[in-house]
Amino acid sequence: MHELGIVMNVLEQADAAAAEYNAEKVMKVTMEVGEVSSIVPDLFIDAFNWAKKKTDYLKDAELEMIIIEGRTYCKSCGGTYRTTEHGKKCPYCGSVDTYLLTGDQVIIKDIEALFKEATGGGPDPSE
């Protein structure tokens, strides 16, 4: 189960951030996931909803995934194209001397959390 390992990392990091900022609980996690990152969004969300029950702060959290389009750059002709349509081979000149510009990222963008106090919100300076 490929997605589960990554979900565990996301939950650990979000749980740690919630503790650091003294949040009551996390309502939502927003991620940016590239379409060629090898993550299947439906499986990822299922794994998230199963594994979140074991966290301290994310038991009721929902997950939003922003999908980032895969774009590849061709070193031979300078063109860019959609990776999922053409893969490694440039559709303009046929070269395979290409590299991925964007679309393989797996990023935790932000978390929306509930706070008891209306002030503060940063890490406790006394720690």
């Binding site: 990554i6 935790i108 932000d110 978390i111 959390a113």
Partner: peptide, 17 residues
């Protein structure tokens, strides 16, 4: 109670890397 957003902008693989 209030809801606030904590910006992380962190790769999931960053800690492992």
């Amino acid at each position: 109670m209030e809801v606030r957003t904590i910006l992380l902008s962190k790769s999931v693989f960053e800690d492992n890397d």
